[in-house]
C-alpha cells in the first residue's frame, strides 16, 4: 500500500531505519537466560518506547542473517541503554543459541525501532499481569512505566524453579506487596479462578508466557465473564521448520526454494527482495502477501488472517506460514 501516491520523492523502502548498536553488557541470569544490553554506536539516546514493546535483533551468523524479536525489558525512561533477556532454546532454529554462544561485549549489531503489540490499556484502573517463565520480560518494562506514573498493578509470576526464576529477587525486593511468585517444582500454581473472580471493576488482564498458559488464562477469563477487550496477551510464534517448497515471486520475476529450516519471509529476503515485516511472529499483519496462484496446501500458522481469508487461498503471512504442493505464486 505504500508508494502509490506520486506526491513526492519520498523514499520507498519499508519501515523505519535500523539502530546501529554495540553490545555493552552481557549478564548470565541462570542456566537458561542471559541479559544483553546495547548502546548506540553514535552515542545518542535510543528512541523512547512504551512498556510491552519489542525490538527485532539482527544477527549476522556467517552468511546467514537472523532476525529475532525480543521484548525490551529496560526502563522506558532510561534511554542510554536498551536491554533484552534471551532464553536459550536448544531445539529452536538457532537464534537464541547464536546470542548465547557467539555474541560478546563490544560486538556491533542492528536493532529495529521499538514496536509495541502488547500495550498497556491506559484506561485501566488496575493492571493485572500473569507471566510464565521468559514471558516476564515485557512486564518488567511495563512495571517501570507504571511505577513512574503511580499506576496500580499486580504481578503473578510462574517459574519452573527458584534457580530459573529470572528477576524474581529484584521483583520481590522492590515490589513485595505487588508480586506473587509460583514455582512448578514446589507444586505451586496460580489460583486463577479466585484471582480473576476478585478483581475490581475496570481491571485489565495481561498474560505472556508459554502457549498453554496463555490459552488457560484466556479461557478462564472468558468463562468467568471477563470482557474480551480487557484481556491482552502476547505470543510470538517462532517459524517452524517444514518440508522445503518452491515459490515464484511474480513482481520480482524470481523463483526461490524455501529451505526446511528457513521461513518463507527469510527466503524472500535472501534474494534481496524488499518485503515488509514488523514482528516476524504472525501477529502484526505487516507481511501479509497476496497469493496469485497455487496448487497445494497452505500451512497457515499466523494469528492475523481471518479464517475465511485463510480458506480463500488468496493470502499468506510469510513470516510463520508455509506451503506444501506444486505451485505457489506470490505478488511480491
Amino acid at each position: 500500500m505504500t508508494g502509490t501516491a506520486p506526491n513526492s520523492t519520498a523514499p520507498k523502502t519499508v519501515g523505519a531505519a535500523k539502530l546501529a548498536v554495540r553490545v555493552s553488557a552481557i549478564t548470565t541470569l541462570n542456566a537458561l537466560v542471559t541479559r544483553f544490553e546495547f548502546q548506540r554506536i553514535d552515542g545518542t539516546d535510543f528512541p523512547t518506547f512504551s512498556g510491552g514493546a519489542h525490538t527485532v535483533v539482527e544477527m549476522m551468523d556467517g552468511e546467514k542473517k537472523r532476525l529475532n524479536p525480543y521484548s525490551l525489558m529496560s526502563d522506558p525512561a532510561e534511554l542510554s541503554t536498551y536491554a533484552i533477556s534471551v532464553r536459550r532454546d536448544d531445539q529452536g532454529r538457532g537464534g537464541s543459541l547464536f546470542m548465547h554462544q557467539k555474541i560478546k561485549v563490544g560486538d556491533e549489531m542492528a536493532l529495529s525501532y521499538p514496536v509495541n503489540l502488547f500495550v498497556l490499556d491506559l484506561r485501566a484502573r488496575k493492571h493485572l499481569f500473569v507471566a510464565g517463565g521468559i514471558g516476564i520480560t515485557p512486564f518488567l518494562a511495563q512495571i517501570k512505566q507504571l511505577e513512574a506514573i503511580g499506576g496500580n498493578w499486580e504481578l503473578h509470576y510462574s517459574c519452573r524453579s527458584p534457580d530459573l526464576g529470572s528477576y524474581v529477587d529484584e521483583l520481590t525486593e522492590n515490589y513485595p506487596h505487588a508480586t506473587s511468585v509460583y514455582y512448578d517444582d514446589k507444586k505451586q500454581s496460580i489460583d486463577l479462578d479466585n484471582l480473576l473472580d476478585g478483581q475490581p471493576f475496570g481491571t485489565h488482564l495481561y498474560v505472556c508466557g508459554p502457549k498453554g498458559m496463555i490459552d488457560w488464562v484466556r479461557k478462564t477469563a472468558t468463562a468467568t465473564g471477563w470482557p474480551q477487550a480487557h484481556v491482552h496477551h502476547e505470543e510470538f510464534l517462532a517459524p517452524q521448520p517444514g518440508r522445503p517448497f518452491a515459490v515464484r515471486l511474480k513482481k520480482s520475476e524470481l523463483t526461490v526454494e524455501v529451505g526446511a529450516q528457513e521461513s518463507l519471509l527469510e527466503a524472500i529476503e535472501r534474494l534481496g527482495v524488499d518485503a515488509p515485516y514488523l514482528c516476524r511472529g504472525g501477529a502484526c499483519g505487516q507481511c501479509e502477501t497476496d497469493v496469485l496462484d497455487s496448487d497445494g496446501t497452505f500451512l497457515h500458522r499466523d494469528h492475523w488472517l481471518e479464517d475465511d481469508e485463510k480458506e480463500s487461498g488468496e493470502k499468506i503471512m510469510p513470516c510463520v506460514s508455509r506451503f506444501e504442493g506444486k505451485i505457489l505464486v506470490l505478488n511480491r
Partner: peptide, 28 residues
C-alpha cells in the same frame, strides 16, 4: 501548494506514502 491530483480524474485511494522528507521547500 500541495495540489492533490496526480492525474485528470479522482477516486478514493488509500494513497499512503512515507512522511520522511520531500523536495526542498515543498510542504513535504
Amino acid at each position: 501548494f500541495p495540489f492533490p491530483f496526480h492525474e485528470d480524474s479522482y477516486m478514493y485511494a488509500v494513497n499512503m506514502e512515507r512522511h520522511q522528507g520531500g523536495p526542498a521547500d515543498s510542504v513535504y
